[in-house]
């Protein structure tokens, strides 16, 4: 195997993004749109003003938390596609607390956070039990429960939690002010939410790198049977991994309700759970790479609705760019490994 020049390394590193841009250009041409204008709209839609930057920061919050959680389940070798449902469960638990309890902000806000984490953890427990006791692959357990969580949200919004003057797709009534996460000045950026997200990823990075628990998880992830023979209670570790992930995802859901929408809306998870799966894959399962990838994803997320407003294109182009980058990342990685062998 020959050592490669740094230039080639850099080229291979940015290749997935370049290939995605080429593919997206072709797709935009098929749709009859000007590719440069479309990319320009996404970039300016994400970065043009302080207001937009605040939106990007707030989009990073759920992505960081969900990605942190998924680093845990990936370490244990699990495909936690149920993160989306865990986000929703956190949002539902938080909504319940916010709408039902009458307390000052100093009491209510911590309770909403704890409720969100508990709700997500419970949803994770459910997935973990279906996997360990029911012997059902976690992909199907998680995915099935994602649909159940969406139905549950709609049921609650159109049933028990419907506003007095009738239920609509815009969700429940706004929460009482005591359940609003404080924001910086008149912006939409909430400092507590951002700090919680940063804390989440840092703690998980540290735990996975340095703790006994992290080592046990990796042992389970590398070889479940061997870990079991070494005396690790694998079922317990797996359930715990789902619960820890659920806790972080639930916190993400909680903050979506208290810091972003200040109410429960039907699509409260906003697809962040699925997106975080892509984030973790693109970061190569390394916690230290997650923040940069999250920034990239959040910018696309905030920038792409601009396509609808200005160019009458569907904002799902943002999702195409995100998933496309990950697909090309996997393919380029495979090609590199193949070339370095020859």
């Amino acid at each position: 195997m020959k050592a490669r020049s740094p230039a080639l390394q850099v080229l291979l590193g940015v290749a997935p993004i370049l290939l995605t841009l080429v593919a997206a250009t072709a797709i935009l041409l098929v749709a009859g749109a000007n590719p440069l204008a479309a990319f320009g709209q996404i970039i300016s839609g994400a970065f043009e003003s302080p207001r937009k930057l605040a939106d990007v920061a707030m989009a990073m919050v759920p992505l960081l938390l969900c990605a942190a959680g998924m680093l845990v389940t990936f370490a244990a070798g699990l495909w936690n596609i149920g993160v989306e449902g865990q986000v929703v469960a956190g949002a539902l638990a938080t909504t319940w607390v916010a709408l039902r309890l009458n307390a000052p902000a100093a009491v209510l806000l911590p309770l909403t956070v704890l409720a969100g984490m508990a709700g997500g953890a419970l949803w994770g427990l459910l997935i973990g039990l279906i996997r360990t006791k029911g012997k059902v692959n976690e992909i199907f357990a998680g995915l099935g429960l994602n649909y159940v969580s969406m139905a549950l949200t709609n049921y609650l919004i159109f049933g028990p939690w419907k506003p007095p003057d009738g239920a609509t797709m815009s969700g429940t009534d706004p929460f009482p002010r005591a359940a609003w996460m404080p924001v910086i000045g008149t912006s939409r950026a909430s400092l507590p939410a951002i700090l919680l997200a940063v804390a989440g990823i840092v703690v998980i990075w540290w735990l996975l790198r340095d703790s006994q628990w992290g080592l046990r998880l990796k042992a389970v992830g590398q070889n479940e049977n061997a870990a079991y023979r070494l005396g690790i209670r694998t079922s317990r570790e797996i359930v715990l991994a789902f619960m820890v992930c659920g806790m972080l995802a639930g916190l993400a859901g909680s903050l979506q309700t208290t810091a972003v929408y200040r109410r429960l809306i039907p699509s409260i998870s906003g697809g962040y759970g699925y997106m975080a799966q892509l984030v973790v894959l693109l970061s190569g399962l390394r916690a230290q790479a997650v923040p940069l990838v999250v920034l990239f994803f959040a910018a696309i997320q905030v920038g792409s609705p601009r396509l609808e407003l200005r160019m009458y294109l569907d904002s799902s182009l943002g999702g195409v760019l995100q998933a496309g980058t990950v697909l090309f990342f996997l393919l380029v990685r495979g090609l590199r490994q193949r070339l370095s062998k020859e």
Binding site: I27, V30, L278, L281, L313, S316, L317, G324, V326, L330
Partner: peptide, 17 residues
């Protein structure tokens, strides 16, 4: 991983196109 990424990619592509 490939299958899951393609699931999301094709879903968004179908909405866009």
């Amino acid at each position: 991983a490939i299958g899951f990424v393609l699931t999301l990619l094709c879903a968004d592509l179908s909405s866009f196109l």
